[in-house]
């Protein structure tokens, strides 16, 4: 019914990396959990930055990630394409384009309605999500794509744990990005102003910060983080146009688990969730593990029922 739109590729194409290698011993399981957790952490920080500055939950965060992955593939070329750009250039180009796209979409879509309620804005980001997915679907179709690891070679053994090289790339570059983010937020004028918008928007206006512009900056920064996560993820997974929504949901779990307040919490939540997911799925019987994403997502509901004060507190105080 409703045309072929309902017939879609399964959203489970994107699977944690450890599935490919089989369920190994605990150290490997933990390591792959951390690797996945880095991706969740980047996406969760992206959610956090946008939410803290604008109060909007960016439903399209997973799709910005997908866009980063797809554009990296496009520029670096699938395996063996002779016309590809150098990897570093490809990643940079992909990230820059998605960042600009994030800012542009905020200006075109969110900005005109920024005084509306949060639900209205969330629905708008669902629209953005569909546009991004559709935009990726038209050139790529429902096919899946992969990219070679950033550096080739056998898995490295570190204190007896075998780690694929791309995993190290993911963990290392996540650390670097988080470091840069911290530096930017605490040492630069724009970073401080962005934090000022989070901490106290009224005070920010009073010192002359044009808070509206920082909405655009926040969306662009959120898109940047997501795109970067997509770029470093694509060598270990297959990119599909519909990989976004599961990642959005997981980033959201990570964000909530981390307390939904600080970037440190979001990173901890992301890595914690990645590890939890790896352990739960790695050590469940196949009949449970077959349900894949459904298992960790159940945790979301548990997390929220337990932690619902985390987000609602400020609202409860200002209400009435």
């Amino acid at each position: 019914m409703c045309g072929a739109a309902l017939v879609r590729a399964s959203m489970m194409d994107w699977m944690p990396t450890f599935f490919a290698t089989g369920i190994g011993q605990l150290p490997e399981t933990l390591a792959s959990g951390i690797v996945n957790g880095c991706i969740y952490a980047l996406a969760a920080v992206s959610l956090l930055v946008v939410y803290n500055v604008t109060g909007v939950i960016n439903f399209a965060v997973g799709d910005f990630l997908m866009a980063g992955a797809m554009l990296t593939l496009l520029f670096a070329g699938p395996n063996g394409d002779p016309h590809r750009l150098p990897l570093a250039v490809a990643v940079l180009l992909a990230v820059v384009i998605v960042t600009a796209l994030g800012g542009l979409l905020e200006l075109l879509v969110i900005h005109p309605r920024r005084r509306q309620g949060t639900i209205f804005l969330l629905i708008l980001t669902i629209g953005i999500s569909s546009v991004l997915e559709g935009g990726a679907l038209i050139p790529t179709g429902s096919l899946t794509y992969g990219l070679r690891p950033f550096t080739s070679g056998p898995a490295l053994s570190i204190v007896g744990v075998l780690l694929p090289r791309q995993d190290l790339w993911i963990v290392g570059s996540t650390l670097i990005v988080m470091g840069l983010l911290w530096y930017g937020a605490t040492r630069t004028r724009i970073g401080k102003a962005l934090r000022a918008c989070e901490v106290n928007p009224t005070a920010a206006r009073l010192v002359g910060i044009r808070v509206d512009r920082y909405w655009t900056i926040a969306f662009a920064l959120g898109a940047l983080l997501a795109a970067f996560a997509g770029a470093i993820l694509v060598p270990v997974t297959y990119a599909t146009y519909d990989m976004g929504i599961p990642i959005t949901l997981k980033a959201f779990v990570a964000w909530i688990l981390g307390g939904a307040e600080s970037p440190v919490g979001a990173v901890a939540g992301g890595i914690g969730f990645g590890v939890l997911e790896a352990v739960v799925l790695g050590y469940s019987p196949a009949s449970v593990a077959n349900y894949g994403d459904a298992v960790p997502l159940l945790l979301l509901i548990v997390a929220l029922v337990i932690r619902r004060r985390g987000l609602t507190r400020q609202m409860a105080v200002t209400r009435v």
């Binding site: 000022a196 901490v199 106290n200």
Partner: peptide
């Protein structure tokens, strides 16, 4: 009124 500082900074 009530100062409106950036409390966490």
């Amino acid at each position: 009124e009530r100062r409106q500082l950036f409390a966490s900074m």
